[in-house]
Write a protein that binds this DNA or RNA. Structure first.
Lengths: 191, 191
DNA sequence: GATTACACTTAATGTAGGTTAAGAAATGGG
DNA sequence: CCCATTTCTTAACCTACATTAAGTGTAATC
Protein backbone atom coordinates (compact mmCIF):
# COMPACT_ATOMS: atom_id res chain seq x y z
CA UNK A 1 0.00 0.00 0.00
CA UNK A 2 1.11 3.53 -0.72
CA UNK A 3 2.83 5.00 2.32
CA UNK A 4 0.68 8.11 2.22
CA UNK A 5 -2.50 6.02 2.23
CA UNK A 6 -1.10 3.97 5.07
CA UNK A 7 -0.44 7.22 6.91
CA UNK A 8 -4.00 8.39 6.40
CA UNK A 9 -5.56 5.09 7.40
CA UNK A 10 -3.93 5.35 10.81
CA UNK A 11 -6.61 7.90 11.63
CA UNK A 12 -9.53 7.51 9.23
CA UNK A 13 -10.86 4.85 6.85
CA UNK A 14 -11.05 5.61 3.15
CA UNK A 15 -12.89 3.57 0.54
CA UNK A 16 -10.78 2.32 -2.38
CA UNK A 17 -12.40 5.01 -4.55
CA UNK A 18 -11.50 7.71 -2.09
CA UNK A 19 -7.95 6.42 -1.93
CA UNK A 20 -7.74 6.65 -5.71
CA UNK A 21 -9.20 10.14 -5.69
CA UNK A 22 -6.72 11.21 -3.07
CA UNK A 23 -3.77 9.79 -4.95
CA UNK A 24 -4.96 11.38 -8.18
CA UNK A 25 -4.63 14.77 -6.48
CA UNK A 26 -1.06 14.17 -5.40
CA UNK A 27 2.07 14.00 -7.43
CA UNK A 28 5.20 11.94 -6.89
CA UNK A 29 8.45 13.82 -7.23
CA UNK A 30 12.08 12.90 -6.82
CA UNK A 31 14.51 15.45 -5.50
CA UNK A 32 18.26 15.53 -5.12
CA UNK A 33 19.86 16.57 -1.87
CA UNK A 34 20.26 20.35 -1.50
CA UNK A 35 17.18 21.15 -3.57
CA UNK A 36 15.19 24.05 -2.12
CA UNK A 37 11.47 23.25 -2.17
CA UNK A 38 10.46 26.60 -0.77
CA UNK A 39 12.09 29.98 -0.18
CA UNK A 40 11.39 32.53 2.53
CA UNK A 41 9.62 35.48 0.96
CA UNK A 42 7.59 33.29 -1.38
CA UNK A 43 4.03 32.15 -0.95
CA UNK A 44 3.95 28.43 -0.19
CA UNK A 45 1.67 26.48 -2.51
CA UNK A 46 2.16 22.88 -1.45
CA UNK A 47 2.94 20.47 1.33
CA UNK A 48 5.14 17.42 1.14
CA UNK A 49 4.81 13.89 2.43
CA UNK A 50 8.16 12.11 2.57
CA UNK A 51 8.08 8.61 1.08
CA UNK A 52 11.80 8.27 1.58
CA UNK A 53 14.65 10.63 2.23
CA UNK A 54 15.02 13.60 4.52
CA UNK A 55 13.86 17.21 4.41
CA UNK A 56 14.13 20.12 6.81
CA UNK A 57 12.50 23.49 7.32
CA UNK A 58 14.42 26.43 8.79
CA UNK A 59 14.51 30.19 8.90
CA UNK A 60 17.38 32.62 8.64
CA UNK A 61 17.97 35.44 11.06
CA UNK A 62 18.98 38.94 10.00
CA UNK A 63 22.38 37.66 10.92
CA UNK A 64 22.81 34.77 8.52
CA UNK A 65 22.11 32.32 11.36
CA UNK A 66 19.92 29.34 10.47
CA UNK A 67 17.39 27.90 12.87
CA UNK A 68 15.91 24.50 12.15
CA UNK A 69 12.17 24.32 12.77
CA UNK A 70 11.68 20.70 11.82
CA UNK A 71 13.02 17.61 10.14
CA UNK A 72 10.82 15.29 8.10
CA UNK A 73 11.90 11.75 7.36
CA UNK A 74 9.97 8.75 6.01
CA UNK A 75 6.27 9.07 6.73
CA UNK A 76 6.30 12.72 7.84
CA UNK A 77 4.64 15.77 6.37
CA UNK A 78 6.42 19.07 5.96
CA UNK A 79 5.48 22.54 4.72
CA UNK A 80 5.53 26.20 5.64
CA UNK A 81 2.23 26.11 7.51
CA UNK A 82 2.04 29.83 8.06
CA UNK A 83 2.54 30.69 4.43
CA UNK A 84 0.46 27.79 3.15
CA UNK A 85 -2.55 28.73 5.27
CA UNK A 86 -2.37 32.49 4.98
CA UNK A 87 -1.11 32.49 1.38
CA UNK A 88 1.28 35.23 2.38
CA UNK A 89 5.07 35.19 2.01
CA UNK A 90 6.63 33.04 4.73
CA UNK A 91 9.86 33.06 6.69
CA UNK A 92 10.83 29.46 6.15
CA UNK A 93 13.06 27.63 3.75
CA UNK A 94 12.38 24.01 2.95
CA UNK A 95 15.41 22.06 1.87
CA UNK A 96 16.01 18.48 0.81
CA UNK A 97 18.85 17.02 2.90
CA UNK A 98 19.04 13.58 1.28
CA UNK A 99 17.80 12.43 -2.12
CA UNK A 100 14.09 12.04 -1.50
CA UNK A 101 10.87 10.72 -2.93
CA UNK A 102 7.96 12.90 -1.90
CA UNK A 103 4.22 13.09 -2.48
CA UNK A 104 3.24 16.64 -3.27
CA UNK A 105 -0.16 17.95 -2.27
CA UNK A 106 -0.93 21.41 -3.59
CA UNK A 107 -2.99 23.75 -1.43
CA UNK A 108 -5.52 23.93 -4.22
CA UNK A 109 -5.94 20.17 -4.35
CA UNK A 110 -6.02 19.93 -0.58
CA UNK A 111 -8.87 22.44 -0.44
CA UNK A 112 -10.73 20.49 -3.11
CA UNK A 113 -10.17 17.23 -1.28
CA UNK A 114 -11.71 18.72 1.87
CA UNK A 115 -14.89 19.22 -0.14
CA UNK A 116 -14.83 15.90 -1.94
CA UNK A 117 -13.82 13.77 1.06
CA UNK A 118 -14.93 15.61 4.18
CA UNK A 119 -13.42 12.87 6.33
CA UNK A 120 -10.07 14.37 5.41
CA UNK A 121 -10.90 17.32 7.64
CA UNK A 122 -10.67 14.88 10.50
CA UNK A 123 -7.43 13.38 9.26
CA UNK A 124 -5.66 16.68 8.94
CA UNK A 125 -7.16 17.91 12.18
CA UNK A 126 -5.63 14.96 14.01
CA UNK A 127 -2.34 15.38 12.17
CA UNK A 128 -2.13 19.00 13.22
CA UNK A 129 -3.28 18.32 16.75
CA UNK A 130 -0.35 15.97 17.15
CA UNK A 131 1.97 18.51 15.64
CA UNK A 132 0.72 21.16 18.02
CA UNK A 133 1.20 18.96 21.05
CA UNK A 134 4.75 18.12 19.98
CA UNK A 135 5.46 21.79 19.37
CA UNK A 136 4.12 22.83 22.73
CA UNK A 137 6.32 20.28 24.42
CA UNK A 138 9.35 21.50 22.51
CA UNK A 139 8.55 25.07 23.49
CA UNK A 140 8.32 24.17 27.16
CA UNK A 141 11.52 22.17 26.88
CA UNK A 142 13.30 25.17 25.44
CA UNK A 143 12.07 27.25 28.34
CA UNK A 144 12.90 24.82 31.11
CA UNK A 145 15.61 22.35 30.10
CA UNK A 146 19.34 22.75 29.60
CA UNK A 147 20.92 22.15 26.19
CA UNK A 148 22.17 18.79 27.44
CA UNK A 149 18.71 17.68 28.50
CA UNK A 150 17.21 18.83 25.21
CA UNK A 151 19.81 16.84 23.34
CA UNK A 152 19.02 13.74 25.41
CA UNK A 153 15.36 14.07 24.54
CA UNK A 154 16.20 14.58 20.89
CA UNK A 155 18.27 11.38 20.88
CA UNK A 156 15.50 9.36 22.45
CA UNK A 157 12.78 10.76 20.25
CA UNK A 158 14.59 10.74 16.92
CA UNK A 159 17.25 8.03 17.19
CA UNK A 160 17.49 7.63 13.42
CA UNK A 161 17.96 11.33 12.74
CA UNK A 162 21.02 11.32 14.95
CA UNK A 163 22.88 9.29 12.33
CA UNK A 164 21.44 11.05 9.30
CA UNK A 165 21.61 14.73 10.09
CA UNK A 166 24.78 16.85 10.14
CA UNK A 167 25.58 17.67 13.74
CA UNK A 168 25.39 21.42 13.27
CA UNK A 169 21.76 21.06 12.30
CA UNK A 170 20.97 19.11 15.42
CA UNK A 171 22.67 21.91 17.32
CA UNK A 172 20.45 24.40 15.56
CA UNK A 173 17.33 22.32 16.26
CA UNK A 174 17.98 22.14 19.98
CA UNK A 175 18.97 25.79 20.03
CA UNK A 176 22.73 26.08 20.51
CA UNK A 177 25.70 26.99 18.32
CA UNK A 178 27.67 24.21 16.59
CA UNK A 179 30.74 25.15 18.64
CA UNK A 180 28.94 24.82 21.92
CA UNK A 181 27.30 21.60 20.77
CA UNK A 182 30.66 20.10 19.97
CA UNK A 183 32.01 21.03 23.39
CA UNK A 184 28.90 19.71 25.08
CA UNK A 185 29.06 16.40 23.23
CA UNK A 186 32.68 15.89 24.27
CA UNK A 187 31.73 16.68 27.86
CA UNK A 188 28.86 14.19 27.76
CA UNK A 189 31.04 11.40 26.38
CA UNK A 190 33.35 11.65 29.37
CA UNK A 191 30.54 10.60 31.70
CA UNK B 1 -25.13 36.34 19.82
CA UNK B 2 -23.25 34.01 22.10
CA UNK B 3 -19.51 34.74 21.93
CA UNK B 4 -18.69 31.10 21.33
CA UNK B 5 -21.08 30.95 18.38
CA UNK B 6 -19.58 34.16 17.07
CA UNK B 7 -16.17 32.55 17.38
CA UNK B 8 -17.27 29.51 15.43
CA UNK B 9 -18.98 31.48 12.71
CA UNK B 10 -15.72 33.19 11.88
CA UNK B 11 -14.73 29.97 10.16
CA UNK B 12 -17.83 27.93 9.39
CA UNK B 13 -21.58 28.54 9.08
CA UNK B 14 -23.94 26.76 11.43
CA UNK B 15 -27.71 26.52 11.06
CA UNK B 16 -29.75 27.80 14.02
CA UNK B 17 -30.46 24.19 14.97
CA UNK B 18 -26.79 23.33 14.92
CA UNK B 19 -26.04 26.35 17.05
CA UNK B 20 -28.59 25.16 19.58
CA UNK B 21 -27.20 21.66 19.51
CA UNK B 22 -23.71 22.99 20.06
CA UNK B 23 -24.75 25.18 22.95
CA UNK B 24 -26.68 22.31 24.52
CA UNK B 25 -23.40 20.39 24.73
CA UNK B 26 -21.58 23.15 26.51
CA UNK B 27 -21.94 24.43 30.00
CA UNK B 28 -21.46 27.92 31.36
CA UNK B 29 -19.41 28.18 34.51
CA UNK B 30 -18.23 31.03 36.65
CA UNK B 31 -14.88 30.80 38.37
CA UNK B 32 -13.12 32.94 40.91
CA UNK B 33 -9.53 34.01 40.41
CA UNK B 34 -6.99 31.41 41.57
CA UNK B 35 -9.25 28.45 40.81
CA UNK B 36 -7.35 25.53 39.31
CA UNK B 37 -9.27 24.06 36.38
CA UNK B 38 -6.77 21.32 35.77
CA UNK B 39 -3.82 19.79 37.60
CA UNK B 40 -0.67 18.21 36.19
CA UNK B 41 -0.85 14.47 36.74
CA UNK B 42 -4.58 14.34 36.03
CA UNK B 43 -6.29 13.36 32.81
CA UNK B 44 -7.83 16.42 31.19
CA UNK B 45 -11.52 15.99 30.37
CA UNK B 46 -12.56 19.37 29.01
CA UNK B 47 -11.56 22.49 27.18
CA UNK B 48 -12.55 26.04 28.01
CA UNK B 49 -13.70 28.96 25.94
CA UNK B 50 -13.31 32.25 27.79
CA UNK B 51 -16.38 34.48 27.61
CA UNK B 52 -14.76 36.97 29.94
CA UNK B 53 -11.86 36.93 32.31
CA UNK B 54 -8.38 35.52 32.07
CA UNK B 55 -6.89 32.03 32.33
CA UNK B 56 -3.41 30.64 31.92
CA UNK B 57 -1.77 27.26 31.41
CA UNK B 58 1.68 26.49 32.79
CA UNK B 59 3.90 23.67 33.88
CA UNK B 60 6.18 23.30 36.87
CA UNK B 61 9.74 22.16 36.64
CA UNK B 62 11.31 19.67 39.05
CA UNK B 63 12.59 22.84 40.62
CA UNK B 64 9.41 24.62 41.56
CA UNK B 65 9.84 26.97 38.60
CA UNK B 66 6.67 27.81 36.67
CA UNK B 67 6.66 28.24 32.90
CA UNK B 68 3.64 29.82 31.24
CA UNK B 69 2.56 28.06 28.08
CA UNK B 70 -0.37 30.31 27.23
CA UNK B 71 -2.81 32.95 28.33
CA UNK B 72 -6.45 32.92 27.30
CA UNK B 73 -8.54 36.04 27.48
CA UNK B 74 -11.96 36.89 26.01
CA UNK B 75 -12.70 34.78 22.96
CA UNK B 76 -9.82 32.31 23.37
CA UNK B 77 -9.83 28.57 23.96
CA UNK B 78 -7.59 26.88 26.48
CA UNK B 79 -6.93 23.32 27.58
CA UNK B 80 -4.19 20.77 28.14
CA UNK B 81 -4.16 19.55 24.55
CA UNK B 82 -1.75 16.72 25.17
CA UNK B 83 -3.73 15.26 28.01
CA UNK B 84 -7.10 15.97 26.41
CA UNK B 85 -6.18 14.20 23.18
CA UNK B 86 -4.23 11.30 24.60
CA UNK B 87 -6.36 10.93 27.73
CA UNK B 88 -3.17 10.43 29.67
CA UNK B 89 -2.00 12.47 32.67
CA UNK B 90 -0.62 15.81 31.51
CA UNK B 91 2.09 18.19 32.68
CA UNK B 92 0.05 21.36 32.65
CA UNK B 93 -1.87 23.30 35.23
CA UNK B 94 -4.74 25.51 34.15
CA UNK B 95 -5.44 28.38 36.46
CA UNK B 96 -7.99 31.19 36.49
CA UNK B 97 -6.19 34.53 36.87
CA UNK B 98 -9.23 36.83 36.99
CA UNK B 99 -12.83 36.00 37.83
CA UNK B 100 -14.03 34.41 34.61
CA UNK B 101 -17.07 33.22 32.74
CA UNK B 102 -16.21 30.20 30.61
CA UNK B 103 -17.98 27.81 28.28
CA UNK B 104 -16.95 24.27 29.10
CA UNK B 105 -16.82 21.65 26.37
CA UNK B 106 -16.14 18.15 27.62
CA UNK B 107 -14.06 15.83 25.50
CA UNK B 108 -16.98 13.45 25.40
CA UNK B 109 -19.34 16.09 24.05
CA UNK B 110 -16.73 17.35 21.63
CA UNK B 111 -16.33 13.86 20.18
CA UNK B 112 -20.10 13.54 19.89
CA UNK B 113 -20.36 16.92 18.20
CA UNK B 114 -17.81 15.84 15.60
CA UNK B 115 -20.24 13.08 14.63
CA UNK B 116 -23.40 15.18 14.79
CA UNK B 117 -21.99 18.27 13.09
CA UNK B 118 -19.09 17.14 10.89
CA UNK B 119 -18.47 20.75 9.88
CA UNK B 120 -17.00 21.19 13.35
CA UNK B 121 -14.05 19.09 12.25
CA UNK B 122 -13.22 21.96 9.96
CA UNK B 123 -13.71 24.56 12.63
CA UNK B 124 -11.42 22.90 15.10
CA UNK B 125 -8.93 22.07 12.38
CA UNK B 126 -8.65 25.74 11.52
CA UNK B 127 -8.48 26.71 15.18
CA UNK B 128 -5.61 24.33 15.77
CA UNK B 129 -3.86 25.27 12.55
CA UNK B 130 -3.73 28.84 13.77
CA UNK B 131 -2.52 27.72 17.15
CA UNK B 132 0.22 25.67 15.56
CA UNK B 133 1.39 28.54 13.40
CA UNK B 134 1.54 30.85 16.41
CA UNK B 135 3.41 28.23 18.39
CA UNK B 136 5.93 27.67 15.65
CA UNK B 137 6.60 31.35 15.48
CA UNK B 138 7.05 31.54 19.23
CA UNK B 139 9.45 28.62 19.10
CA UNK B 140 11.55 30.27 16.42
CA UNK B 141 11.47 33.53 18.34
CA UNK B 142 12.79 31.78 21.41
CA UNK B 143 15.62 30.34 19.36
CA UNK B 144 16.58 33.51 17.56
CA UNK B 145 15.51 36.64 19.45
CA UNK B 146 16.80 38.27 22.62
CA UNK B 147 14.57 38.61 25.67
CA UNK B 148 14.07 42.28 24.83
CA UNK B 149 12.91 41.51 21.31
CA UNK B 150 10.57 38.80 22.55
CA UNK B 151 9.07 41.25 25.00
CA UNK B 152 8.56 43.81 22.23
CA UNK B 153 6.71 41.24 20.17
CA UNK B 154 4.63 40.24 23.16
CA UNK B 155 3.61 43.85 23.73
CA UNK B 156 2.58 44.32 20.12
CA UNK B 157 0.71 41.06 19.87
CA UNK B 158 -1.06 41.13 23.23
CA UNK B 159 -1.37 44.79 24.21
CA UNK B 160 -4.28 44.10 26.56
CA UNK B 161 -2.53 41.31 28.43
CA UNK B 162 0.25 43.69 29.32
CA UNK B 163 -2.11 45.52 31.67
CA UNK B 164 -3.88 42.46 33.02
CA UNK B 165 -1.17 39.95 33.75
CA UNK B 166 1.25 40.11 36.69
CA UNK B 167 4.65 41.01 35.35
CA UNK B 168 6.35 37.87 36.61
CA UNK B 169 4.06 35.80 34.43
CA UNK B 170 4.95 37.79 31.37
CA UNK B 171 8.57 37.14 32.29
CA UNK B 172 7.83 33.45 32.47
CA UNK B 173 5.98 33.52 29.14
CA UNK B 174 8.85 35.12 27.28
CA UNK B 175 11.32 32.88 29.07
CA UNK B 176 13.28 34.91 31.63
CA UNK B 177 13.31 35.22 35.42
CA UNK B 178 11.23 37.95 37.08
CA UNK B 179 14.44 39.55 38.36
CA UNK B 180 15.98 39.80 34.95
CA UNK B 181 12.70 41.00 33.49
CA UNK B 182 12.53 43.81 36.02
CA UNK B 183 16.06 44.93 35.21
CA UNK B 184 15.41 44.67 31.48
CA UNK B 185 12.23 46.75 31.74
CA UNK B 186 14.09 49.50 33.61
CA UNK B 187 16.81 49.45 30.96
CA UNK B 188 14.22 49.68 28.16
CA UNK B 189 12.46 52.63 29.78
CA UNK B 190 15.65 54.66 29.71
CA UNK B 191 15.70 54.58 25.93
C1' DG C 1 -5.21 48.37 61.77
C1' DA C 2 -1.88 45.02 62.17
C1' DT C 3 -0.15 41.00 59.74
C1' DT C 4 0.73 38.15 56.27
C1' DA C 5 1.62 37.32 51.74
C1' DC C 6 2.76 38.38 47.31
C1' DA C 7 4.70 41.37 43.51
C1' DC C 8 8.34 44.10 42.22
C1' DT C 9 13.08 46.14 42.52
C1' DT C 10 18.07 46.38 43.07
C1' DA C 11 22.56 44.68 43.33
C1' DA C 12 26.42 41.35 43.77
C1' DT C 13 28.03 37.31 41.97
C1' DG C 14 27.81 33.02 39.01
C1' DT C 15 27.35 30.32 34.73
C1' DA C 16 25.44 28.37 30.47
C1' DG C 17 26.14 29.20 26.31
C1' DG C 18 27.90 32.69 22.52
C1' DT C 19 31.71 34.62 19.72
C1' DT C 20 35.89 34.59 17.34
C1' DA C 21 39.47 32.35 15.30
C1' DA C 22 42.28 28.73 13.70
C1' DG C 23 43.27 24.06 12.63
C1' DA C 24 41.82 19.12 11.70
C1' DA C 25 38.77 15.93 9.67
C1' DA C 26 35.51 14.58 6.54
C1' DT C 27 32.98 14.99 2.26
C1' DG C 28 32.28 15.55 -2.48
C1' DG C 29 32.65 17.02 -7.21
C1' DG C 30 35.38 16.89 -11.38
C1' DC D 1 42.84 11.04 -6.84
C1' DC D 2 43.11 15.70 -5.65
C1' DC D 3 41.42 20.08 -4.52
C1' DA D 4 37.69 22.68 -2.57
C1' DT D 5 34.26 23.11 0.38
C1' DT D 6 31.97 22.04 4.28
C1' DT D 7 31.81 20.08 8.91
C1' DC D 8 33.73 19.41 13.30
C1' DT D 9 36.85 20.48 17.15
C1' DT D 10 39.42 23.16 20.46
C1' DA D 11 40.43 27.09 23.14
C1' DA D 12 40.44 31.89 24.85
C1' DC D 13 37.52 35.26 25.93
C1' DC D 14 32.79 37.46 26.37
C1' DT D 15 27.79 38.35 27.64
C1' DA D 16 22.96 37.56 28.36
C1' DC D 17 20.69 35.87 31.64
C1' DA D 18 20.34 33.12 36.28
C1' DT D 19 20.87 32.91 41.22
C1' DT D 20 20.84 34.58 45.72
C1' DA D 21 19.62 37.75 48.87
C1' DA D 22 17.83 41.80 50.92
C1' DG D 23 14.67 45.53 50.76
C1' DT D 24 10.24 48.13 49.24
C1' DG D 25 5.49 48.68 48.03
C1' DT D 26 0.83 47.07 48.13
C1' DA D 27 -3.16 44.33 48.49
C1' DA D 28 -5.64 40.77 51.08
C1' DT D 29 -7.07 38.65 55.31
C1' DC D 30 -7.96 38.50 60.13
Amino acid sequence: MDPIIQNISKHITLTPEEEQLFLSKTEIRHYKAKTMLHHAGQVCKESYFVNSGLIRSFNINDNIVEHVLSFACDGWWISDMYSLLSQKPGNLFIEVLEDSEVMVLSKENQDQLYLEIPKLERFFRILIENSLVANQERLMDNLSLTAEERFDKFCKRYPTLLQQVPQKQIASYIGVTPEFFSKMKARMLKK
